[in-house]
Design a protein around this nucleic acid. Structure first.
Lengths: 199, 199
DNA sequence: ATTCTCATACCAACTGGTACGTATGAGCAA
DNA sequence: TTGCTCATACGTACCAGTTGGTATGAGAAT
């Protein structure tokens, strides 16, 4: 019985196919027909489940960011020291970059090309970035109070720093194909944090 | 007859229009018709000057990166200390991010969306990134020999670090519209360099 | 100087293909 | 029957690129 809808397989396969294609070629260059072909269904199905291409993008973005957030949460939830928590998050990101299945970040891919043309998608991307940055910033601000209360640096800004460094590394990876970039950059970031928080 | 060889104004206005549009909407989403309309010429002219849209992209990319490189060179050429040179480069980048005319980086914009679909353009982007990263890395390696020969960090990797941080910051800027991100992130980077090279 | 030639600069209309989206109905479960 | 799932077939718009021109000016021939 595939009637009642937690998750119709056709819809899921459409989402999976779209995600893979769009991670590689972006939102605009990926056509609905391509997605349907890759998913092994026809356009009728596509427009049965999604009002239009933009809505697919929205759903895809939500699904992607939710997964990502769950991964981070799972890795860090049990750690109570805020600095340790951030360090573990960085390690999680490094591990993700090693995994050949992790082909990039949908949020970054979308943000580049549709921020001017699809305001709604842009807003979702902004929210995703903001949530991640805020989580890191919160921990690092708390860690500063705890470990280095007298130091003079802007801990709150390090959330954006982390997001930017990660997204930039992914862009470099996509362009050069050199998988190790992300890891090297994040290790430098860890070094920076250690220097800020007194080893 | 207008100017002969050097730089027909029609061609230049096509390039200018294309650059502005593509910085905002990307390569794929910007249509040739749009470019022509913005430049105030017809499609016939476009295809008189460019074999196809991809060639326009190539020319645009070359022009953009050449300009950028000239700006950096002008700012740093006279400085002989390698660490000072990098610091000045960072300041130049910060200054560029303050200027409302600097609307982003074509290389980063293109790299995201065409790395899978237009191998030639991807290669140009890769080269641009590599040249910048290599310049920074060279200086920082030399600076390490000079200022911190015994420290244990990977100076060569800092070239990619700088490029990634810059590109990521531009992505954040595009997504959130918050212009100050680039400056905050690059200031943190300067702080990191100071900590590595012994203030 | 006048005319002929030819390359460059530009334009308007069109073509083939493709993209998104719709109309409609078949198959099946409840 | 009724409603959900999915397919076939089509419509409309638009996009990259082409065709077939016109206009202008440089240089050579006359």
């Amino acid at each position: 019985m595939r009637t009642r809808h937690p998750d119709p397989p056709t819809r899921t396969s459409l989402l999976d196919a779209a995600e893979e294609l769009m991670l590689a070629k972006g939102f605009v260059a990926t056509t609905v027909d391509e997605i349907c072909a890759a998913a092994g269904v026809t356009k009728g199905s596509f427009f049965h489940y999604f009002r239009n291409k933009e809505e697919l993008g929205k759903v895809l973005l939500d699904r992607f960011s939710q997964r990502q957030e769950a991964r981070f949460l799972e890795a860090c939830a049990s750690i109570e020291d805020p600095l340790e928590r951030v360090m573990t998050m960085i390690d999680t990101a490094i591990a993700g970059s090693r995994d050949p299945a992790g082909k990039g970040c949908l949020v970054g891919t979308f943000a580049q090309e549709i921020s001017e043309t699809h305001p709604k998608l842009r807003q979702i991307c902004e929210l995703c970035f903001e949530r991640l940055a805020a989580a890191v910033a919160r921990d690092l601000v708390e860690a500063k109070e705890r470990h280095a209360p007298d130091a003079a640096f802007d801990a709150a800004a390090l959330g954006d720093f982390f997001v930017a460094l990660g997204q930039g590394s992914l862009l470099l990876l996509k362009t050069t194909g050199e998988r190790a970039v992300m890891e090297r950059n994040l290790l430098h970031f860890k070094g920076y944090l250690r220097s800020l928080y007194g080893k």
